[in-house]
Design a protein around this nucleic acid. Sequence first.
DNA 1: ATTAGGG
DNA 2: CCCTAAT
Length: 658
Amino acid sequence: MALQKRLDYGFNGYQVPPTPRAARSVRRRCVFKRKADDQQMCAFDLLATVAGKLLLDGESPASAHTSCGKEQPAALEDSFGKEEKDENKPLEKILPASGITTSDCSEKVGPAEQLVNDDCKLRLGIFTPSVDVESSGFRLPANCGSEDESRKLIKMETASTRNLSISNKASLCSSGHSEALDRKPSALVSPVDSLKFPFCRDNTPCSSFPGNQDNVKLVNRDDDENSSECNEPGTRNKAFKPQPRVGDRRFRKLLASKHCKITPNVKDDERYNADTERCDYLNRKNNIKRQRSMRDYPFKKRKLYDCSSVSNSEEGVSSDGICTVPENGTNGGGLGPGPTLPGAIPNPTPAAGGNASFHSRNSQVKLKIKSFRVPELYIEIPENATVGSLKRTVLEAVNAVLGGGLRVGVLLQGKKIRDDNKTLLQTGISQDNKMDTLGFTLEPSPTPAPIRLYPEDRRGQLLCDSPQPLARYPPTPSITQNGGQQRNLDTPPDLPGTSFNNFIESDHDSAPSPPGMSLQRTTSESKALVPVPSMKQDALAVVPLRKSKRSESAQRRIRRPFTVAEVEALVQAVEKLGTGRWRDVKLRAFDSAKHRTYVDLKDKWKTLVHTARISPQQRRGEPVPQELLDRVLTAHAYWSQQQAKQQLKSQPDTSLLL
DNA sequence: ATTAGGG
DNA sequence: CCCTAAT
């Protein structure tokens, strides 16, 4: 690196040590650095600050953009709005023209900066597809006092994102109440206004199975090698792992969920926070649904997956006591575990001093969150890296942030509302005149056990103090996750923008984004956002130091569920070759799928056989056509028999003896 | 390097 | 998917 010049996209966050794999990869490096003074903060803090402006319905129709452009996800956009198409082109070649420069980014970023020579910061913005309010808006049943207007539609505009000055975050964090901090826009921001990340992409690498005949070979572009190294498990930053699960789900829901209803019931929130373990299922489900809907989002949650696994271990280890407990303490006293139906009327949560009377009426407040913007990311990448790698790097960075576990904060008139138990009415959110000042922020979720960099940090208190999001989007109750079939009607998993995971995962494909989704530049950034100090970040920040048992050794490979096409290829190959010849099967049908080893195929077959034997209701993951499963059983039976015969022949003695 | 099977 | 044992 000494010789190499790096671009540093700023994200005031954490540093992510290159994973072994990344290290090996000469091509690029991704390093997240956090500012020196910001060491203890978690990147998430910064990133996640998002503010939203709520507009009353109809207030500014123009602002509601629902169209979705087709852009590549994570496409690097130069300042001119022109997208660099050649991913293989070295950055240095395009940078000058693109406005991304290596020029002067003088700010020191912190300890890590030794690695960095030049810092160029790009602002990253993430845009969620606008969601139709009607169908997708969040509904917040609120107890309404005087006015019974049944519903207010609120459109939330993208809030502007700003960099938080982190200097005194300590105070910020600890102070229990929100102060609107004022942040100054970071000087680091490069000319590049923002990178846009469409949430809605529909690239499906998915392969329709090509060959119908005998030799089916999957053309798998899923090469590990080519795909971003960053995405590779090994490359993945472990630092981020801790938060993923919860955040993942939550985030997804926040972003995309249509039909999400949020009940004011705080308790629900709490409950949801607690459940971090179902992410996998959720993800899986999402994938499935997605496919069913014909929208294959290429990105799978590869990273998240890894992250979670790692993080978990970390969590367990972390001694801070920061708990993994999501947020209980303060408000949610006893959240009943039982799932609350979305439509259920929230129990009035008597906040201290709250007006119990209010809850008698429920007015619905509809909110539409058009997009969230991710504040700043620092990315370090070699100058000669390709655009494609840059994209992946950015994607990874964003993913790390988003997938790390987010929670939502609610700001009203610049103040953070910490009491989750208050009703919208009580806080004034339901009042029209205050809608404008309503903002949402994304904050790192405290849930994942953070690993702290500095032992002495005051993280503990911070965590405790952390504000409770007013309206957190409740993840679908366990129902959804368990029964593959049954899902909450209110939360269709399929939304394009919904799964961030997917987004992240697909490094290779750059399919066109699904119609309807657009990336728009947020013009409103300037307004609306209220500064939110990030506090719990500490937890996140910790990550870098963590040494997981695994960290040193090879990392677990990313989970890559077999697609139906792959299954078909496998079945076909096995039908022909039989079981026990996995190497041949691999060569025959998965020769190009570098990430599928013969062991994987063997394992898959094993699971397929199992899957075929269990009832459809018990099956999880992407549904495999019954027809294929039947073939699996047939082939399995046949080859098992063959095998038996073989053995019989080879060892007649045995039979004789018996 | 493969195969088989348990975890 | 991982890990191991046995080939």
